[in-house]
């Protein structure tokens, strides 16, 4: 029962120990500020441009990659230097419970149509993509990465580990899916004459998770709340169902 706690302690000790390692390009004191600076610049770029194409996920990751390439740091070194951030991943997933709890009253009001829509949408999003990939002859790694395409990244990472997929590929697929949904989603619905902001928010949350939710919040608070709610529920539902389906 306590083995997970011990594992966490060992991990924390290792991360702390890395701080006392001799200074190098892959030292946490180099990598962590690099991450923070790239995140901050990515955020500023996104705010200035206002385009979902330049979402901080994309801007910041490109900046980090370019810097690592210049410094000659490989991915293992970078991962080790970023150890502190990996420790925060679990608590960040748990923190998703708070917005979920805050929006729960809305579910009760909108009731069964939302729940049914969520269930179908959460199954449809990965299913359609996986079917297309199967038709195109995609490899197993590709199929596994697509199954978590529309859940929020922390959950997708946890699932990739559970399903023995490639975590980085899962994270990349999630980021680009989010951008696609956030860029094209609102205009598709406008063309279809769907004006209900609840529908738009919910579809964004299911198909484009956090990036879609950021877009939804720009449209209206109602749209954003529905998107955040759909994102949380979709993540929880997928995390519960997917491992069962894949092992089966």
């Amino acid at each position: 029962m306590w083995s997970e706690w011990q594992r966490w302690l060992t991990q924390a000790q290792q991360v702390a120990g890395d701080f006392f390692a001799p200074l190098s390009a892959a030292h946490p004191l180099v990598i962590l500020p690099l991450n923070a600076a790239a995140f901050w610049i990515g955020l500023q770029l996104y705010r200035r441009s206002g385009s979902p194409l330049l979402h901080p996920v994309i801007g910041a990751s490109l900046l980090v990659f370019a810097t690592l390439w210049l410094l000659g740091v490989n991915f293992e070194g970078y991962q080790r230097g970023s150890g502190l951030l990996y420790l925060l991943l679990g608590p960040a997933i748990v923190a998703l419970a708070i917005p979920l709890k805050q929006n729960l009253a809305m579910v009760r009001r909108a009731g069964w149509p939302l729940m049914l829509g969520l269930l179908v949408g959460a199954i449809l999003a990965p299913l359609v993509a996986v079917l297309i990939a199967v038709l195109l002859g995609g490899s197993r790694a590709v199929l596994i990465a697509l199954t978590t395409k529309s859940v929020t990244t922390p959950v997708a990472l946890a699932l990739a580990q559970e399903l023995h997929g490639i975590q980085s590929l899962a994270a990349g697929v999630v980021a680009f899916t989010g951008v696609i949904g956030a860029v094209f989603g609102p205009s598709i619905l406008r063309r279809l004459n769907v004006t209900d902001e609840r529908v738009l928010g919910f579809s964004l949350g299911i198909n484009a998770h956090a990036i879609g939710t950021a877009r939804a919040l720009e449209i209206s608070a109602l749209c954003g709340a529905f998107s955040a709610l759909a994102m949380g529920l979709c993540g929880a539902l997928t995390a519960l169902l997917l491992p069962l389906i894949v092992t089966f």
Binding site: N35, V57, S61, Y78, Q79, A92, I98, S168, A171
Partner: peptide, 26 residues
């Protein structure tokens, strides 16, 4: 605390996201 940690979500996920540029087995 939850609001703060969720605001930093992109930063926390950055190491995993950067990995996509290093993938070579595909």
């Amino acid at each position: 605390v939850a609001v703060q940690i969720l605001r930093l979500l992109v930063l926390i996920l950055l190491p995993a996201t950067v990995g996509i540029y290093f993938l070579q087995q595909l």
